[in-house]
Design a protein around this nucleic acid. Structure first.
Length: 513
RNA sequence: GGCCCUAUCGUCUAGCGGUUAGGACACCACCCUCUCACGGUGGGGACAGGAGUUCGAUUCUCCUUAGGGUCACCA
């Protein structure tokens, strides 16, 4: 029996949730679900300069909105997902945020003492040292090394300082940082990555990384290693941008005498030009996509497929979250970056829209409808839930994004303008067109309430149309929609009702000279 | 520039020594059809290049090329 796996998503609260971050969180979540492990949400807020008010809450909310809910770590007080456990407590620095789990605090700014203590241990064991070098000196050093085509690295100048001098300068209030003392004699650093296999790097290429900043806060490297150990994280699953700093982390584990966790570095999400996905070249925030009318389940599905596939010859493309949890495997995670091309997202979104129950679809589309001028200008009964459901029923197979609702069907909300030139079907004259419309009016006027369904209306109109359907159906459809393209006439009739249907036919007849 | 990672249709990908190199999105054509959409059928479209290893390389190794990431008191 192997010990249960523990993974974490550890965002920095500097903005809204990025789709790349969503995918990292998702893979962590899926792996935990598949393995029966624990998914932790930890907050890495050790950079006071980049703190953004409200970002943490937004991050947690976005994650939960996508269904990627943690088992442990940070939650929101007012969220129904938050487990009501005894261990649950408030965050000291973030009102509205609570924590669940016995390894807390899960917010790094509340763990400063822990990092300071561990940094001291490293100094005592000579794995780290105090450095007083000025930024000016470091800049100069870097410039020279770059000019000499060398890797920019700290030159260990302060390593030679005596304990006495360090004490004296610190007592004098001189600002200092704590640096990792990269061992000189050690051989190559080799580690196994679950997606990349063995990765190795020469120690001489590893810099004496700053572990604790002048302000006493730890850098990412120290804090994440200490926390991953203390929170008993077994698998570090993160973006590929962390690959180059992994050797530093391994050195840190070794300095502390700790076992090294498993690593998985996920391929990057890319812009169309193959550079790392960024704002500037389009939307990157989860919220942006939700606001554009994409469904959370479609976004999850899409992002899951960017870098992973079900393997075993499977051609399945549409996955629910639990199906993903069932199928997920690192053996099927790709090594190369994936372009974030939303055309497939559009298709997936349309697929999900098609399978949604109409009442649910109407419910989700309503917020978008409420922002449309044509909706706001419509009569009260055309703003009703019943009417929205009918509009959505007919529009469902045509919808790509929720935000598109009604856009191609303004005639559901306002009376169309009758166009005498558009009304006749191929080569027909005004007279026969008028006759067709009058016939339709009589027919629709006598359809019983029991027959007032999409199906029956379709059958009735098709019956009446006979062989040459276009002669009858085209003018009717144009009369009802005022458009070259629209849903079939029976669907428009069903949506707008008998009264409006007859009125539109009358109007069309009247413009035919 | 140093270090590291990566390389199959336009895009997402299957492939794990022998395949007519498969699928999806997008695109085109046809069918369905009163238009649009849905759906169906078909089509064009890829192994970056060069050496090896092997009876045989898309697949293994090396080199080249290309792209990317990273070199902060940011994560």
């Amino acid at each position: 029996m192997t010990s249960p796996i523990r993974v974490r998503f550890a965002p920095s609260p500097t903005g809204s949730l990025h789709v790349g971050g969503l995918r990292t969180a998702l893979y962590n979540y899926l792996f935990a679900r598949k393995q029966g492990g624990t998914f932790i949400l930890r907050i890495e807020d050790t950079d006071r300069d980049r703190f953004v008010s409200g970002a943490l809450e937004g991050l947690v909310r976005s994650l939960e909105g996508m269904g990627v809910v943690p088992d442990e770590g940070v939650f929101l007080l007012d969220d129904p997902h938050t487990p009501a456990r005894v261990a649950s407590r408030h965050s000291e620095t973030y009102p509205g945020v609570s924590e669940v789990g016995i390894y807390g605090p899960y917010i790094q700014s509340e763990r400063l003492g822990i990092y300071a203590e561990h940094a001291e241990r490293l100094i005592a064991s000579k794995h780290a040292y105090r450095c007083f070098c000025s930024r000016e000196r470091l800049d100069l050093l870097r410039e020279k090394q770059t000019a000499d085509h060398e890797a920019p690295k700290y030159d260990k100048l302060c390593l030679t300082l005596s304990d006495e001098e360090v004490s004296r300068r610190m007592a004098a209030g001189e600002p200092s940082v704590i640096r990792l003392n990269v061992p000189e004699g050690r051989g190559d650093i080799v580690f196994h990555d679950l997606v990349r296999g063995d990765v190795s790097i020469h120690v001489q290429n590893v810099d004496d990384q700053i572990l604790v900043k002048t302000d006493g806060y730890p850098t990412y490297h120290l804090a994440s290693v200490v926390d991953d150990r203390l929170m008993e994280v077994t698998h570090v699953i993160r973006g590929e941008e962390w690959l180059p700093s992994t050797p530093k982390h391994i050195l840190l584990y070794e300095a502390f005498g700790w076992p090294v966790p498993e690593f998985s570095h996920l391929p990057l999400l890319l812009n169309p030009d193959k550079s790392k996905l960024s704002k500037r070249q389009g939307d990157v925030a989860v919220e942006d996509y939700l606001a554009k009318g994409y469904l959370p389940e479609a976004l999850i599905n899409f992002v899951a497929l960017l870098g992973w596939n079900p393997g075993q010859g499977s051609t399945k493309e549409v996955f629910t979250l639990s199906e993903l949890s069932e199928a997920f495997d690192f053996a099927q995670v790709n090594k190369s970056g994936a372009v974030f091309d939303t055309r497939k997202l559009d298709w997936l979104n349309a697929q999900y829209i098609k399978t949604l129950p109409v009442s649910e679809l109407a419910h989700r589309a309503l917020p978008f409808l409420r922002e449309k001028p044509f909706f706001l200008a419509a009569s009260e009964d055309r703003q009703s839930d019943d009417y929205t459901i009918r509009v959505v029923t007919v529009g469902q197979e045509r919808l790509v994004k929720l935000s598109d609702v009604g856009d191609e069907h303004p005639f559901f909300f306002a009376e169309p303008v009758a166009d005498p030139a558009l009304l006749p079907w191929k080569g027909n004259d005004a007279e026969s067109t008028r006759a067709a419309l009058e016939k339709a009016a009589i027919l629709i006027g006598t359809v019983s309430d029991a027959d007032w369904t999409r199906e029956r209306l379709g059958e009735i109109l098709l019956d009446a149309a006979g062989e040459k359907r276009g002669d009858f159906l085209w003018p009717l459809r144009v009369a009802l929609s005022g458009a070259k393209q629209s849903p079939p006439p029976q669907d428009i009739t069903w949506v707008i009702g008998r009264e409006a249907t007859l009125a539109r036919i009358r109007e069309a007849v009247s413009v035919l000279a």
